[in-house]
Design a protein around this nucleic acid. Structure first.
Lengths: 356, 356
DNA sequence: CTGAAAGCGCTTACAG
DNA sequence: CTGAAAGCGCTTACAG
């Protein structure tokens, strides 16, 4: 057990000046040594060891504020994310933080809750701090964001977004959505199931949603199925909102066939509605984007999923940033996703009884 | 579409000095106005409006490095979390960031991956930056961490941890674990199911796990059931590790009864094993800590859960920090959790007590 | 009512 | 091989 904490003694953290005084060298020498530049300046091994020892003894850590203020480059890396409530962004953020720290940068995370105004505020903040790079994940207003960067020295890397002339990294949302839709169609066919397939979740201005809708539509049309705007059910990304939307839709469409579910949050909204109408929910075929890897195994629903590789996506984005200037016109990278198949195709006995 | 970005023009962000020159006032006056202290210094409305207008025009944002360096108090708030891969910590982090920003503080998040060495590094970093407060969530080595703070001015608030003499906020892990275990026992009884109940997931030194094991044990003993160390299956918090552990256990224990699952990650490990032995997995009764709110509804497993209110926990922790000095000896707050019942026993999640 | 000046901890030409 | 000194953008006594 630690002792009750002492009240106000507060020794200040070790500083360069402190180490300089204690060792008898100048600030310059200490700073040089501590920054690993001793050899560039032919600083004696003895001097170096003395300073290093003292620094270790005092547990010296540079004051980032002073360092960044002075050196001009802020050492700040920013990550803008719409939320941290789901696996995809949580993992993105965790990887971001680890990579930033490993390169000696300060990781700043700004959560914008799918709000374009908050997004603009986030970017302005990062710019005002002279951030070295901002990773913009899944923005609502990608183009507006890009214009904010104009004239600044701050780099920008987009994740799950497409912006003309910028560096972008993402899952191939169009292709993945098409694959997922195909899986739904095929699953319905094998099951002898008919009925409309709808696209559920997301807001009209949300770029990634738009790409997925195009993939959804392409698959439908390839299969000779019609697509109309009415098949798209918009909904804000919250369980409550998704629940309301799916409820309204299903009560108006008594015999649905399948659903393209645009987020794990939307799936939770559906699950909540399942309490009210198990039969209908259970009869449908689902395809979920950002599925939890093992979710499909747990459930007795007919459910497929796209599992994005968020760690790889972030690593790729970071690489693109850290390997110097981007090529003129930007560069776009797609990171492969993984399809998660419904458990029927895996080694598990089919019983699929309603729990009712 | 934004224009291709300009290459190196880089106008520097607006500064106090810039505004001073442009408006003809001194740095002092500008600084005072911008910090909302005009009235304390009887600064003319005209002066104030002029400066404010110019600041807005230039989209002035204070340089945090300069401000914090000068003003001594760093304005930094730290959050130490073991991971961001799950809902509980993701939501914690999101709420933390929002609260910090709303109070004009700089939110710094440090992910430690359940590694005591990383935890110490995180705390040392925060201390070296003179952070105003560090929120320590679910540490492996709470006591060691507390000693690191000794003699510093940095406040500390523990989340999901108990430290002698410190301010702590958490779910009542003991009580919740006991309730959850009771639910498992009762569910098994109603089902006429016998067999050992084991505790699955977590590492020996993990404090919160220890508290939950005590609750688990209490419930067993209250029900006249034996408890022995062999019923505890340790496992690192990763899907892979949990899969391996559960596999080893179940192959050695052919007729298990129930499982206290110590994290959603552990549950995913089990789900993965379900592919190999559906019968066994399906026959057991589960209780999961940190369940996804609607997970139990999706599955055909017999599964109960504890749903922690991470947002409320973080808000409470933040309040405790922001309302000044903590009382001598610290203060401990428990935030109520919610029991999620298996769908067989209830039509929906119910607040309060376990199944009756 | 407003300004001149010091200084937070650091880095970096420059001098020797 | 090492040191004296300037300055990053800000805040805050202090002076008037």
């Amino acid at each position: 057990m630690p002792k009750r904490k002492a009240k106000r003694p507060g020794p200040k953290p070790a500083s360069i000046r402190g180490i300089a005084q204690l060792t008898g060298f100048s600030n310059t020498t200490v700073s040089l040594v501590l920054n690993g530049r001793s050899s560039d300046f032919n600083i004696t091994k003895e001097t170096r060891d003395l300073i290093l020892a003292k620094a270790k003894e005092l547990n010296y850590q540079p004051n980032i504020h002073a360092r960044n203020l002075r050196s001009g480059h802020s050492n700040i890396l920013g990550l803008m994310v719409p939320t941290l409530h789901n696996r995809f962004f949580g993992e993105l953020a965790e990887t971001f933080e680890a990579l930033a720290r490993a390169s000696g940068k300060l990781a700043l995370i700004h959560v914008t809750r799918y709000d374009p105004a908050e997004e603009a505020a986030a970017i302005r903040f990062f710019l005002s701090q002279n951030a070295e790079c901002v990773f913009v994940a899944n923005p609502m207003a990608a183009d507006e964001i890009a214009t904010l960067f104009e004239g600044s020295h701050t780099r920008q890397v987009y994740i799950d977004a497409t912006v003309e002339g910028q560096t972008t990294v993402s899952t191939d949302n169009f292709a993945a959505a098409r694959e997922l839709t195909r899986a739904i169609i095929e699953s319905m066919a094998m099951d002898g199931r008919s009925g409309e397939i709808c696209f559920f979740g997301g807001m009209p201005d949300h770029q990634v949603t738009g790409q997925r809708i195009r993939g959804f539509r392409a698959a439908l049309e390839e299969a000779g199925l019609a697509f109309s705007e009415e098949q798209v059910i918009w909904s804000h990304f919250s369980i409550e909102a998704c629940y309301e939307s799916v409820r309204t839709y299903l009560q108006a469409h008594p015999a649905p066939g399948g659903m393209f579910v645009n987020s794990i949050i939307a799936m939770e909204g559906i699950t909540r509605y399942l309490l009210e109408d198990y039969e209908t929910c259970h009869s449908m075929h689902y395809g979920v984007f950002d599925i939890l890897p093992y979710l499909s195994l747990l459930t007795d629903l007919k459910i497929f999923g796209v599992d994005q590789d968020s760690q790889k996506i972030m690593e790729t984005a970071f690489d693109l940033y850290s390997t110097g200037e981007p090529p003129e016109g930007g560069i776009s990278v797609h990171v492969p996703h993984r399809m998660v198949l419904a458990k029927k195709t895996a080694a598990r006995p089919v019983d699929g009884k309603a729990a009712s």
